[in-house]
Amino acid sequence: MPRKIIPYNPKLKELARNLRNNSTPGEIRLWQELKAKQFLGYDFHRQKPLLNYVVDFYCAELNLVIEIDGRYHEEITDKDLKRTEELEQQQLTILRFTEQEVQTDMFNVLRTLEIYADGFNNKIND
């Protein structure tokens, strides 16, 4: 299945770089598990511009966006819902974890990602 190219606003590249350089402890911790194809061989990118947003983590092979909530706020806002809707229109799945979950329960965060990957692969192989 060919990879779908998702456009992005080039003006976000500098913001993405700044976010990578100022990651939260949770983002750093999850990146240690995802970088260099360590997680089941999938290629993840962090602070990736997609459309008019910068997502925390992105895997094109899985059509997956991972967001870690807690950098700016604890609750989901209308802006988050609009962003989720626009990303889902690109056939992306958004998985959300809190900063606390990533910091204190990495086992279950990774288990959730494994379950998603298994389901995704089963769906495309049917």
Rank of each mutant, 00 (worst) to 15 (best):
M1T: 08
M1N: 06
P2H: 11
K4A: 12
I5M: 12
I6D: 06
P7Q: 09
Y8D: 06
Y8P: 02
N9G: 09
P10F: 02
K11Q: 15
L12S: 08
K13M: 09
K13R: 14
K13L: 14
E14L: 14
L15S: 13
L15K: 13
A16C: 09
R17W: 12
R17L: 14
N18Q: 09
R20S: 06
R20A: 01
R20P: 02
N22E: 06
N22T: 10
N22G: 05
G26M: 04
E27R: 00
E27S: 00
I28W: 05
R29A: 12
L30P: 02
L30K: 03
W31D: 01
E33T: 05
E33S: 11
L34V: 10
K35Y: 11
K35T: 11
A36V: 07
A36I: 09
K37H: 12
K37T: 10
L40D: 14
Y42H: 14
D43N: 12
D43Q: 13
F44Q: 05
F44G: 03
H45D: 15
H45I: 12
H45Q: 15
Q47S: 09
Q47C: 08
Q47V: 05
P49E: 10
L50T: 00
L51A: 04
L51Y: 01
N52C: 12
Y53K: 06
V54A: 05
V54W: 02
D56I: 02
D56H: 03
D56E: 09
D56W: 03
F57A: 00
F57W: 04
F57N: 01
F57V: 03
Y58G: 02
C59R: 02
C59K: 03
A60G: 02
E61R: 03
E61I: 05
L62T: 08
N63R: 11
N63W: 04
N63H: 13
L64H: 04
E67R: 03
E67N: 07
D69H: 12
D69K: 12
G70P: 02
Y72Q: 13
Y72E: 13
Y72P: 00
E75K: 12
T77K: 10
K79M: 06
K79C: 01
L81W: 07
L81E: 11
L81N: 09
L81Y: 11
K82P: 00
R83G: 02
R83S: 01
R83M: 04
R83Q: 03
T84Y: 03
T84P: 00
E85R: 10
E85N: 07
E86A: 11
E86I: 10
L87V: 01
L87K: 04
Q89P: 00
Q90D: 07
Q91D: 15
L92R: 00
L92H: 00
I94R: 10
L95Q: 07
T98Y: 07
T98P: 00
E99K: 06
Q100Y: 06
Q100E: 14
E101G: 02
E101L: 07
E101I: 05
Q103V: 08
Q103R: 07
D105K: 09
D105A: 11
D105R: 10
M106D: 04
M106R: 06
N108D: 10
N108P: 04
V109I: 09
L110V: 12
R111V: 13
L113D: 00
I115W: 05
Y116L: 08
D118L: 15
D118V: 14
D118Y: 15
F120K: 11
F120M: 11
N121K: 09
N122V: 08
I124W: 06
N125F: 11
D126P: 02
D126K: 07
D126Y: 08
D126R: 09
